[in-house]
């Protein structure tokens, strides 16, 4: 450990509340005093058996090693509309250290009924960029790379290659099938989620499993078929339930040392309500 790190650790320990909890104010002071980033401070906090105060309520659930695992993870969210906006919000609050958010679109008025990041103030703005601003005001320990272009672009594929996990938050079946192909070629796990009206589904898609193609078998490529969604639309409660199930699946995947090789998922009907899971 460098001398400056020893001083930083001593500073953090002195600033701890309730023995070992480090408040945001200590990060702010330390960042100035030692010319380090919030992320560097967080790494040192966790390495030294201290715990960020902001994560107090998930301490028993994740422990230091789990929080470290999340901090070191790089996760992609493809699509930043209904599912994507809520997924980003949860990943940022959980403390996933590095996020890649990809969406070529900007917010329009008809997004306001369900998309967390769509507000009267963000209409007309790029969705990924708005996600980046949201991230900064919630958790400055998280680095968010916003890409205002398609995941199929050269930049998109290049950025995906260095990820640990990918969330499918797209709104078109042909695009989902393409994303699954790209993830397979990059050997990446994908957490699929889709909604239509009161219904939604999630699936853990291992690379080269063919799961996405099986889910959307008999979909005519030229039909732009998007299931029920095109005809019946989307509701905020369905979007948020499915986004939450996707994040839970992703979280357990990131924390699980032994990664499953087979797919698993569930279908949710919020109207009854009922949840049917499969593996």
């Amino acid at each position: 450990m460098r001398h400056s790190d020893t001083l930083l650790v001593a500073f953090l320990k002195a600033a701890a509340v309730e023995d070992d909890l480090i408040p945001l104010s200590a990060y702010e002071e330390a960042a100035q005093k030692f010319a380090v980033t919030f992320k560097e401070i967080e790494t040192i906090v966790l390495e030294n058996g201290l715990f960020p105060l902001r994560y107090l309520r998930q301490r028993k659930l994740l422990a230091i090693w789990g929080q470290q695992r999340l901090l070191q993870s790089r996760v992609a969210v493809i699509g930043c509309g209904g599912l994507g906006g809520s997924i980003v919000e949860m990943l940022v609050r959980l403390g996933v250290g590095n996020l890649l958010v990809v969406d070529p679109d900007f917010f329009v008025e008809s997004n306001l009924n369900r998309q967390l990041l769509a507000t009267t103030a963000t209409l007309g703005r790029y969705k990924a960029e708005v996600a980046s601003e949201r991230c900064a005001i919630i958790n400055p320990m998280v680095t968010l790379e916003a890409l205002n272009q398609s995941f199929q672009s050269e930049n998109g594929i290049q950025s995906l290659a260095s990820c640990d996990l990918v969330f499918d938050a797209l709104d078109s079946i042909p695009l989902r099938l393409e994303l699954a192909e790209i993830c397979s070629s990059l050997d990446l796990f994908l957490i699929h989620g889709a909604v239509a009206g009161w219904y939604g589904q999630t699936a853990l898609v291992p690379p080269a499993s063919g799961t996405m193609a099986r889910i959307y078998q008999r979909t005519e490529p030229e039909s732009q078929a998007d299931g029920f969604e095109g005809s019946i639309g989307n509701l905020s409660p369905t979007v948020n339930v499915i986004a939450a199930l996707q994040v839970a699946a992703g979280l357990s995947h990131l924390l699980d040392g032994e990664q499953k090789s087979s797919s698993a998922g569930c279908f949710v009907d919020l109207l009854i309500p009922e949840l049917e899971s499969w593996s």
């Binding site: 239509a196 959307y216 499969w278």
Partner: peptide, 29 residues
């Protein structure tokens, strides 16, 4: 999604006595 006895299957899967088969509508939004 098509599920047979808790497993994700496709249209060509042949059923046998006692199978439990679940059919879900396509969702894509």
């Amino acid at each position: 999604i098509l599920i047979c006895n808790g497993r994700h299957v496709d249209f060509d899967t042949e059923l046998v006595e006692g199978d439990i088969c679940s059919l879900f509508p396509k969702v894509g939004g």
